[in-house]
Design a protein around this nucleic acid. Sequence first.
DNA 1: ACTACAGAGTAAAACGCTTTACAATTCTAG
DNA 2: CTAGAATTGTAAAGCGTTTTACTCTGTAGT
Lengths: 365, 365
Amino acid sequence: MASPAPPPSDRRRKSPPMGKRRANIRDVARESGVSLTTVSLVINGNDQRISEPTRQRVRAAIEKLHYTPSRLARGLPNRRANTLAVLVPALQHAFADAYFGEIISGIYESAADRGYRILLEVARRDYIRRKEYLTIVEENAVDAILFVGATAEHEWLEDFAESDRPLILVNNRLEKLDLHHVVCDYSGAGQLAASYLIELGHHRIGHVSGPRDVVLTSAELTAAFVETLKEHGVATSSSMIVDGQLQAETGKLAADELLERDPKLTAIFAANDKMALGVYQSLRERGLKPGVDVSVLGCDDIATAPLADPPLTTIRMNFFDVGAVAARQMIDIVEKKLEFASGQRISEVVDVSLVPRESCRPVEG
Amino acid sequence: MASPAPPPSDRRRKSPPMGKRRANIRDVARESGVSLTTVSLVINGNDQRISEPTRQRVRAAIEKLHYTPSRLARGLPNRRANTLAVLVPALQHAFADAYFGEIISGIYESAADRGYRILLEVARRDYIRRKEYLTIVEENAVDAILFVGATAEHEWLEDFAESDRPLILVNNRLEKLDLHHVVCDYSGAGQLAASYLIELGHHRIGHVSGPRDVVLTSAELTAAFVETLKEHGVATSSSMIVDGQLQAETGKLAADELLERDPKLTAIFAANDKMALGVYQSLRERGLKPGVDVSVLGCDDIATAPLADPPLTTIRMNFFDVGAVAARQMIDIVEKKLEFASGQRISEVVDVSLVPRESCRPVEG
DNA sequence: ACTACAGAGTAAAACGCTTTACAATTCTAG
DNA sequence: CTAGAATTGTAAAGCGTTTTACTCTGTAGT
């Protein structure tokens, strides 16, 4: 029985595309007289079997039709989105912070170079509770997560610890959880700070540290600083160290404390520039001139450091690079360019350097 | 002729999913004993015809299987990505700027509420040249573009002017191009500034404006300020106005100029807080106390305004809200909740308010 | 002459969903 | 009773790719 040809499908959900519809891969195939497959192979370039003439023709057609592949459709078959998630903690307006901003800029740079997009995510309470961070990778909205402001308090990170779920910590490490990470050389920074200050002749030195209990890199910085002082025979005691919370106000408070404990301090090393600026405040309130009466050394080299009065001597942390490296590494993993024994972790360290300006002087006589 | 049943397709490109594959809509359908369609309709909720009992069953199955729809697949049929692009100009580390940060936070907030994601894009030269801004919407990577730092110099925006391509200007408007936009009430701010200063008895007033030639809102602010002064019978001359570039240094320079032209100025209104802080510098260098000898009024209310010395009186611009409103509007458009006559444009204005602190005092005598 | 094989290309399945047009069943009204 | 309407559901087309497993030439080796 000759089955009748099926009636032309009239079930299009749209009226026939009157206006010029966007060209798709099929159009290109038709235009260049080859198969769908061939076009796809040409686009993705990695397959050697298509001959040069054919390639040419396909490319011509692509050009002519202004064809661009659909990202959406592209991701479907191999479940890849060509997108990276940048996850930040739910701080008050995290995006408005220069620290995050610089890292994100670095991430963006690398990602753009490799044809990846950046999706912004904020780890709000709700977000964590519903484990959205898992969802986004499971539903293939993103290929990997770059988490920027990790601390020991982010316990949900354990969901990534014993798995090969693609997450990397940007400029943070965790003591308890073994995760991919890229960090600035905080130990190196601590050493640098100590040797510089000693070189200038200081030996009564105070230190405003970061929140060492939850931020491992802060702990490292301080440990290396203290260790190096010791190595150079500078007496250290824990009373010379006061923890701050990385904000200017806490830097000021910490300096107040420090100067009360030892009014003859000749130098203060702050774990970041914002706190160093807080230290400036504290000194001024006491009628002391930063950089003259007391040397102040910062860390990070934020944009406003050179604009301070006096310009802040500091240790340059290349946050931009940290972001860039982290993104590159994750992309390598996603694209399987980096094969890992399951459980093996990325652990890159980015160099730091000292930027001498005017807030540190040799100790007098 | 009985055609033999087609052999079970053996062409799976993966070995049979041994490990637990992620559940898809088909699994849910099977589990709850209904059709694919039904599940889809339940998920999307908008269709009334599915009965409550069926809904229950489907939801139970979804729960049980930990099912989450794939964003990728979801976007394909109706060509929607549930994603908004935030486009920023290629300034040096734009993301590190508090202004952008606050707007982005607002955008994020609205978008998250409506189930939309945020894609970050930087309008680098290359990006513009290759018209990527068109590509991303054409290839359905995003549903709409929110452009944050527009100026008259961004000529490529004309690609959106006479079309219904979904782009909105966030906190900017353009004179030449008719585009969707949401802005703070810069005219209102200008009025507010003028009346406040007059109320305090000032009539020798200087003004550091923004780059009026390329930023329309800066022009509006200044125009309204001048106009209101005039209305109150305060003589104005163009020599009282100096353009700055919105950065602290240019604010200082402008103030230098202003104070040279009229050393008896009793108040200065700066078009943004950063420049106001620059004005502080200029005053201090002359041995004048900001807020005492010369009142200083800012605009924006950035995070550091209350921390300045003296705390800066300013006009609060709710950038967060501007971002939030812009995102909401675009989502409405994308989802066709807002039907527009082609060519009709969104034009929302967000209120501003005066925040009195200590940098403005009544004029003496 | 006959297998082997490389080279160039293709058919078709699969990815996971949305939505339209239709089907089956039950209800309502005449 | 029965025609029609309402209710609840379903089949299947379609979205735009990637990729696997083939096919078809022609050439080389034996």
